[in-house]
Amino acid sequence: MERKEFTITLYTENSIGLIGRISGIFSRRKINIESLNTSPSEAEGIHRFTLVIHETEEVVMKICRQLEKQIDVLKAYFNTDDEIVWQEQALYKVPTSVVAEKVYVERLLRQYGASTVVIREDYIVFETAGHREEIDRLTEELNKYGLIEFVRGARIAIIKKSAGFHEKLLEFDNREPSRAIVENEYLDQRDDVFTM
């Protein structure tokens, strides 16, 4: 099977040490995490991890099953690039003199949709968002004009065919409890009566 880029989306509880446990699953299998982002999700109290790896689909399926066995992981999804909408952010620090004197640099920044974050006498900081290839091309061009500093953020992604995880949580909450749970509640109530 061919290795390709996959984006793994995890919905988790927000607990201490979870990043270590998640990264441990990948390191034990000698799989490099190329990008990792974590943030609150659309569901209150639930966090979302977005990871990018290069692997075969078979390995990614196994990893997702293993991730879901972690007590704080609620759900793991994996997708190819064409199944998601994704972006990466970047910040560029460029000498002010270059932007003021070189019309090409100003056009280049406009072409890539870069917006100004900070203007100082000695440098200007721009931000942009796009796919990795676009960010790489802009970085390469700005290097020719004395790029001072560059940083890229981790991938953020939304699954195209998803109604959002909060819908799944609501479905789960609205389900009738299983008979075993009802019986346990009844037994707990009886135990309360006997211990009074």
Rank of each mutant, 00 (worst) to 15 (best):
T12V: 02
D173A: 13
S178D: 13
K93M: 12
S27N: 08
G146P: 07
F165N: 05
L74N: 05
L36H: 07
I31P: 01
V103D: 15
S35P: 08
D136G: 04
E42C: 07
Y104V: 15
G113E: 04
I181F: 10
S27W: 01
E88F: 02
L67M: 07
I25H: 01
S15C: 09
M196Q: 14
Q87C: 04
F6L: 00
A163D: 15
Q70E: 12
I156F: 10
I63M: 07
E167G: 03
I19S: 06
M1Y: 04
K168A: 11
M1A: 11
L91I: 12
A180E: 15
R21Y: 08
V105A: 00
I22F: 06
D192W: 07
I156D: 04
S97K: 15
R110Q: 11
A100P: 00
G130W: 03
S162N: 06
E134W: 00
S23K: 02
E121R: 15
E55V: 04
N143F: 02
S162F: 05
T139R: 12
L91V: 12
L138Q: 01
E5Q: 12
E141I: 06
E13Y: 09
E171S: 10
I158E: 11
E106W: 03
G45M: 12
P95T: 06
L147M: 11
R137Y: 10
A157P: 06
M196C: 09
C64H: 05
D173S: 06
L18N: 01
V73R: 02
G24H: 10
I33N: 03
D191P: 00
N37P: 02
E55W: 01
H166P: 00
G153K: 01
T128A: 15
I16L: 07
L142S: 04
K93H: 07
I63W: 04
G20I: 03
V98D: 02
Y145W: 14
E2W: 04
L74Q: 09
E134Y: 00
I46N: 10
T56V: 06
Y11C: 09
R29K: 15
V85G: 03
E57H: 03
T38L: 09
S97E: 14
N37Q: 14
L138S: 06
R137P: 01
T50P: 05
K69P: 05
